[in-house]
Design a protein around this nucleic acid. Structure first.
Lengths: 345, 345
DNA sequence: ATGAAAGCGCTAACAA
DNA sequence: TTGTTAGCGCTTTCAT
């Protein structure tokens, strides 16, 4: 910067002004500074900048790198953060790396807020993080801790799926749950409620699972080993649904003729033509926007902590659902809206 | 830090010494400093630290967040970097975010080296990055640019797969390629070479694809629409193989009885019991270690740039390969070693 | 519109 | 073993 200033024959402050395009710089000077900088390949040093103003304008995102839903969220977070003038750094947890450590790294890089995707950290740890940064949790709630939260209205999503299947004539709808993953306890509970609402209390059946393809396949084998399949399966998420789909297909079961399958999330591969999974879509852009806005709002307006943002999901009807076999009901036309205005991507 | 020093009654330098556990601090003083710091919740400020020493000891990793192979690499990079005392920050490219921009972000965070996973950036851009940081490319070569490179010996992998299929009695082995993705041109070329080596020059057939499930499914439909299937398919990567598997299974084709399938990479889902994909495993821990070491070596030993590290792949025989239908040859026992010592995870 | 000077919180000689 | 003293490269009043 010294050099740039010298080259143009001005003081460093001027160069500084230009680079954070603050008012008070001659348009011509501005131009000359920029050119000189380009010539000698000058780049502002962010560490020095961060040190000087005491703000970093950096948002940290914690993700599980092998989770496709997280991948979607990350991609949606970038443009939102940029829009508000924030930078984003990513840190991943993994089998060999605790989320605890991943968060510490983020803090070490001076993130002013951390956005945690489906965090598994203990509330007590988050509380300690709260003293150093704004914390936003996506998908999991931490009531009373001061953590900002954004999540999907799981109940509405599950209900629209169950209602839809019921309208199609299904009664034996089993739920493969997602264990303790973000959103799963809610989905499990909401499934039960939705079944009861439809007078299907006796048909309630939950198979344990998690959010992996493997668990869908395991559930499939379990079901295949029994007398007969249920007519519909509501999976804990898309990956689970896809594992289920794969396993039953190999066993010669035809979807949706023999069994209907509904997922949750609407990850990109769910929409691929050869999968065409009917699923409850989470509003990824909305979640991303809400998460970033919650963080920035706290940072810039000293708002009260612990706000919550809830987004509506949307049933996306594709080709893995139809009326149960032996039913006279015709398969409904695709794209048919239900009360939550399902749509096809 | 000021406060900590005051609290213990020593100077700031002492506290500094303690925090980067440099020699020259009394074990008792050390103890007291640490305690005092804990009490007032002091955390060293990394921006200031980076500014003061002119080294950051941070490695930047560029990945495509929805690429499972990248996910594996990232998970393997973390422990390696930590072992050598480096911190890691992640930056993702995406449809809405060019790798160009992602790399700029990394540089802005003062990464001393950037590790690019399957980079698609233009060599001219990388050259400009080279002036500001050490650049390591994983999976793609940039000869003569000064970029460090680590990649798999694609030729050995492809050859072992083709040799294995040939030994099983296959002749009609088609390759679904990976377009211009990292490693694909090599794999395409190596497939041709391996076919010729086995006297199957006339059977060479390459279908265009990319590294997604979708492309495997598309290729499957293409093949299914013809008179008869080839007896074996060598996919450009595992995702493509899995898309192929899925599509043919739905069409009632049984794998491996009707067609054998081999992938490339050995991503985690390839090993799932219900998939059991035979594949060419890339040495992910090895690639990660080599990438980190190349970067650190350059950084710390002023070594000559442009080194290359090549790792051997390994054929992993699972259950998607067998002798072609109508062959008397029995299916070979699993775990049978071939010249590249294939093994089962 | 432009310049001077005082830090931001830490590290790294060097002295004591 | 401990304290002193300069900076690291930038931002930011406050003058000019």
């Amino acid at each position: 910067m010294e050099d740039v200033a010298a080259r143009v024959g001005v003081s460093r402050s001027l160069v500084s002004l230009v680079f954070r395009d603050a008012p008070g710089a001659g348009p011509r000077t501005r131009e000359r500074v920029l050119r000189a900088a380009a010539e000698i390949g000058y780049r502002p040093d962010s560490a020095a900048r961060v040190l000087a103003r005491s703000r970093s304008r950096v948002l940290g995102v914690l993700l599980t790198v092998r989770n496709p839903f997280h991948a979607d969220l990350v991609e949606a977070i970038y443009p939102e953060a940029e829009r508000l003038g924030y930078d984003v750094v990513l840190s991943a947890d993994a089998p060999t790396r605790s989320s605890h450590k991943a968060i510490e790294t983020l803090l070490g890089h001076r993130c002013e807020a951390v956005i945690l995707l489906g965090p598994t950290a203990r509330p007590s740890f988050l509380t300690s993080v709260l003293r150093r940064a704004v914390v936003v949790s996506v998908g999991r709630r931490f009531p009373g801790t001061g953590v900002e939260t954004v999540h999907t209205a799981e109940a509405r999503g599950i209900r629209s799926a169950v209602d839809y299947l019921t309208a199609l004539g299904h009664r034996e709808i089993v739920h493969i749950d997602g264990g303790s993953n973000a959103g799963s306890p809610e989905r499990r509970r909401d499934y039960r409620a939705a079944m009861r609402r439809n007078g299907l209390a006796d048909e309630i059946r939950v198979l344990r699972g998690d959010h992996t393809e493997e668990s869908g396949a395991v559930a499939a084998h379990q079901l295949l080993s029994e007398d007969r399949l249920p007519t519909a399966v509501l999976a804990g998420n898309d990956r689970c649904a896809m594992g289920f789909l794969d396993a039953v297909s190999r066993a010669g079961v035809v979807v949706p003729d023999d069994v209907s399958v509904v997922g949750f999330d609407d990850i990109p591969s769910a929409g691929l033509s050869h999968i065409a999974l009917t699923t409850v879509r989470q509003d990824v852009p909305g979640l991303a926007r809400a998460a970033v806005e919650l963080a920035v709002h706290r940072l810039e307006n000293s708002a009260e902590p612990g706000r919550e943002s809830v987004l509506d999901p949307e049933l996306v009807v594709r080709e893995t659902t139809a009326a149960p076999r032996g039913t006279t009901a015709t398969r409904p036309p695709r794209h048919e809206p239900d009360r939550l205005a399902p749509s096809v991507r």
